[in-house]
């Protein structure tokens, strides 16, 4: 990790728990570079994680950090953001956490367009529990619970977020890390629900069952299969099969939830001469 980012880390919590070849450290580095670029105040930034390998990242970060229950990170984050809209709230989640057990929270947070930035570490597998298939495991790929290859269809989580109401959606890979950092920064800057899907490698639980034995091999796979969204306009659907479309996939303007709630407070207060609320300051 670059020297300039060390101030964002709880160095006493290292070494981290991730396996050799895991891409999570690269995604985390991209997140921190985005935070650095935007000069976010650590005291005014909350990072919330769910359960899984990626969500463990929050414990290593020197911010206000919350490691929640499986799939619920967005619901906890919604409470934090609504209670204190002035805070930056970033959610770190994985493919199983966000789209299986947390799928309902995911679509509803997107629907509300609440100002949360979700960095979804997509390694296509449940890594922490040893390699079970997730809703983002591509059809035919093997997992411990899909020893013959999964017969389920996978979500396109970017498309899911867009149709649910997200106002910013981007995707990149750990190979395209500069792009990833830039997308995360743009997601944080967007006043509304932002999803940045980070394609990351899990050689231990996914790669070795699917003919990609090392992290390096998986990075090469990312390099060879990613297509920037700008190039896709000139490509036929058949050419895009099996490709990862990266870049800024979706952006639109829409009212943000907590801003609308502040407006609602102002209107309700005018009706009744109400007041404002200050968070607790202790006894």
């Amino acid at each position: 990790m670059m020297q300039e980012l060390q101030g964002y880390l709880r160095l006493d919590r290292f070494p981290h728990m991730w396996c050799p070849g895991c891409g999570n450290g690269i995604v985390l580095g991209c997140l921190l570079r985005a935070i650095k670029k935007l000069e976010l105040d650590q005291d005014r930034t909350v990072i919330v994680g769910g359960i899984g390998c990626s969500s463990r990242a929050v414990g290593y970060l020197d911010f206000n950090t919350l490691h929640t229950t499986h799939g619920r990170a967005l619901a906890f984050a919604t409470g934090i953001k609504l209670a204190r809209p002035e805070l930056h709230v970033i959610v770190i989640t994985g493919d199983g956490d966000a789209t299986a057990i947390g799928g309902n929270h995911f679509i509803h947070a997107a629907r509300r367009n609440i100002d949360l930035t979700v960095v979804l570490f997509n390694n296509n597998i449940y890594g922490m529990t040893g390699g079970q298939y997730s809703p983002l495991t591509p059809g035919g790929k093997k997992a411990t619970t899909a020893p013959y290859g999964t017969i389920e269809h996978n979500f396109d989580v970017a498309e899911l977020a867009r149709s649910a109401g997200a106002t910013y959606v981007g995707r990149s890979t750990t190979y395209h890390s500069n792009l990833l950092a830039n997308l995360i920064a743009a997601g944080i800057e967007n006043k509304g629900f932002s999803l940045v899907e980070a394609i990351t490698a899990c050689p231990t639980a996914y790669g070795r069952r699917n003919k990609m034995r090392s992290g390096a091999e998986m990075l090469l796979w990312q390099k060879e299969n990613a297509v920037h969204v700008k190039k896709t306009e000139r490509m036929a659907p058949a050419e895009l099969a099996g490709k990862i479309v990266i870049g800024e996939l979706h952006k639109r303007e829409a009212p943000e939830y907590t801003a609308m709630y502040e407006q609602l407070i102002a209107e309700a207060g005018r009706e009744t001469g109400g007041g404002s609320v200050t968070p607790l300051k202790g006894r």
């Binding site: 919350l66 906890f76 204190r84």
Partner: peptide, 14 residues
């Protein structure tokens, strides 16, 4: 999600 949001808000001071 209801209780999750409540816990989040409590951590944020309400």
């Amino acid at each position: 999600a209801g209780l999750a949001a409540v816990i989040g808000a409590s951590l944020a001071g309400l």
